[in-house]
Amino acid sequence: MKKRRTREVLLMVLFFCLTNIAFGQIQTKTDTILCHNKNLIIEYPAIHKINVVNYEEGYFKIINCVLDSAAIIIHCGSMINLPLTDLSDKIICSEFVLGKDVRSIRGYYMTDNGKKYFREDNYFKYGIAIVYEHVGETKLKSYEHFFNDIKIQ
């Protein structure tokens, strides 16, 4: 009788974990990235693969989000053309400019799998550019939340 009860409890815990992963929020990680003596604090999906590309004037940190095929690109440095995103095949939904300090561009583009969204935030004052791209409609709120909560200290 005791073994049966233990098995039932384990199955319930397993079921709860699986439904939480499948239907719950994205499991996330918070990272602090040093850029020009400033700390960039950003949250992104916990299951990811990171690639860092250095060049003479800075670096790119590319975070490939495994579960939804989105990518977050963080650029710290100079000597690049902005925006990082190639806008030639994209539909711009909004563009926000705050003087010479901040620019944010949002939009989407069409793929065989439907609309994919992107956003690029340029923090000119700090030499930082942050992009998400290839985000599906079902995950858009999560990525917007990640970018709206970015802190530079």
Score class of each variant (00 low, 15 high):
140 L>D: 08
118 F>W: 01
138 T>Y: 07
133 E>P: 03
118 F>T: 04
143 Y>A: 09
135 V>D: 05
124 F>Y: 02
136 G>M: 05
120 E>F: 09
129 A>F: 02
147 F>V: 14
143 Y>M: 12
140 L>M: 10
130 I>C: 06
127 G>M: 07
131 V>Y: 10
119 R>K: 13
116 K>Y: 07
128 I>V: 15
124 F>C: 00
135 V>N: 14
120 E>M: 04
116 K>I: 02
118 F>Y: 15
115 K>D: 14
126 Y>C: 00
121 D>M: 11
130 I>Q: 01
134 H>L: 03
130 I>F: 00
127 G>T: 00
119 R>T: 00
147 F>R: 06
146 F>T: 04
128 I>Q: 01
146 F>S: 05
125 K>Y: 06
143 Y>F: 15
135 V>I: 11
116 K>F: 02
118 F>G: 12
131 V>Q: 04
122 N>H: 00
139 K>W: 03
131 V>C: 06
142 S>Q: 13
144 E>C: 10
145 H>Y: 13
117 Y>W: 03
136 G>W: 02
136 G>T: 12
129 A>I: 02
126 Y>K: 01
118 F>H: 06
130 I>L: 11
123 Y>I: 05
142 S>R: 04
116 K>M: 05
119 R>V: 00
115 K>N: 15
139 K>Q: 15
146 F>R: 01
137 E>K: 09
133 E>G: 11
145 H>C: 12
123 Y>H: 06
123 Y>A: 02
125 K>A: 07
128 I>C: 02
142 S>C: 03
126 Y>V: 01
128 I>Y: 01
145 H>S: 15
132 Y>L: 08
145 H>K: 15
137 E>H: 04
123 Y>Q: 04
145 H>V: 03
145 H>L: 09
116 K>T: 02
129 A>P: 00
138 T>A: 13
131 V>I: 13
119 R>D: 08
120 E>Q: 13
117 Y>I: 08
131 V>S: 05
133 E>V: 10
126 Y>N: 11
121 D>V: 14
144 E>V: 05
131 V>A: 10
142 S>V: 12
142 S>M: 01
141 K>F: 04
135 V>A: 11
115 K>F: 04
